[in-house]
């Protein structure tokens, strides 16, 4: 049992911290650097027409590159913690109606993912959202008993998991040889970004799905 005194003290401290933050926010002067204008000014050279995608994969591409690396590390961490097992069990099959629904929905979700990827160049969407939809499709198939959980990832799966990061890294490296890291030549920028995003979509979808499939295979063993 946590002593009441500690509880009260922590809540008071957190409340005054939040209060101080809010007061500071209300006091803030107007910003001196106007980033949206800077983004707007460079949109023509970015290769895409949607500002968020331009920031994500062009202006601050190295953030995204490192982020994919972090995701890969997280998956390796989960693999290390849960351990490699030979034969994962599939979930007990769901009712036929649910299975049929999952079989109908999964291809549609893949279509939505590819659409989101393509649309990301001109409107909200992109590799992250597309990857998330792919992962959701995999989770749906797993929960209805169609897709078994993961044991040890085979060589082909390993390559696909790392593909997004490796393609991104290869493009960055090639551009580094030409001058600066991830400074795309404006003429090829759109094509390069689409290439990187396609790799990211596949890898992100597999990594996010893998996080679930690796963790959920433990459920049955613990009872």
């Amino acid at each position: 049992m946590i002593p009441l005194l500690k509880r009260v003290a922590v809540i008071l401290a957190a409340a005054s911290f939040a209060g101080a933050l809010v007061v500071a926010m209300l006091d803030l002067p107007a910003p001196t650097v106007h980033l949206p204008a800077a983004v707007e000014a460079n949109m023509a050279a970015s290769g895409v027409a949607h500002p968020v995608t331009a920031v994500l994969l062009n202006f601050r591409g190295y953030d995204t590159l490192l982020e994919v690396g972090v995701l890969l590390l997280a998956l390796l961490g989960v693999l290390a913690v849960t351990g490699v097992r030979a034969a994962p069990r599939a979930v007990a099959p769901a009712e036929p109606a649910k299975r049929m629904l999952a079989r109908l929905l999964a291809p549609l979700m893949m279509l939505v993912a590819v659409y989101l990827l393509w649309a990301g160049a001109i409107q909200p969407g992109g590799a992250f959202q597309a990857g998330a939809v792919l992962a959701a499709a995999a989770v749906l198939l797993h929960l209805t008993g169609i897709l078994p959980g993961w044991g040890a990832p085979g060589p082909r799966l390993r390559v696909s998991l790392a593909a997004g990061f490796l393609i991104f890294l290869a493009v960055a490296g090639a551009l580094l040889a030409r001058g600066a890291l991830l400074a795309y030549p404006p003429a090829q920028a759109g094509m390069l970004i689409l290439l990187i995003e396609a790799g990211l979509m596949v890898s992100l979808g597999l990594i996010l799905a893998g996080l679930f499939l690796l963790l959920s295979r433990d459920s049955g063993d613990e009872a």
Binding site: V52, L56, L71, V81
Partner: peptide, 29 residues
Amino acid sequence: ADPVPQAMVLTGIVVAVASTALALALARR
């Protein structure tokens, strides 16, 4: 709208789910 923090938060959300999964793996272990 300011696309720069929006893009950073987008990366942040994906990293948050990855760290949540790792934390859950440790807790379950």
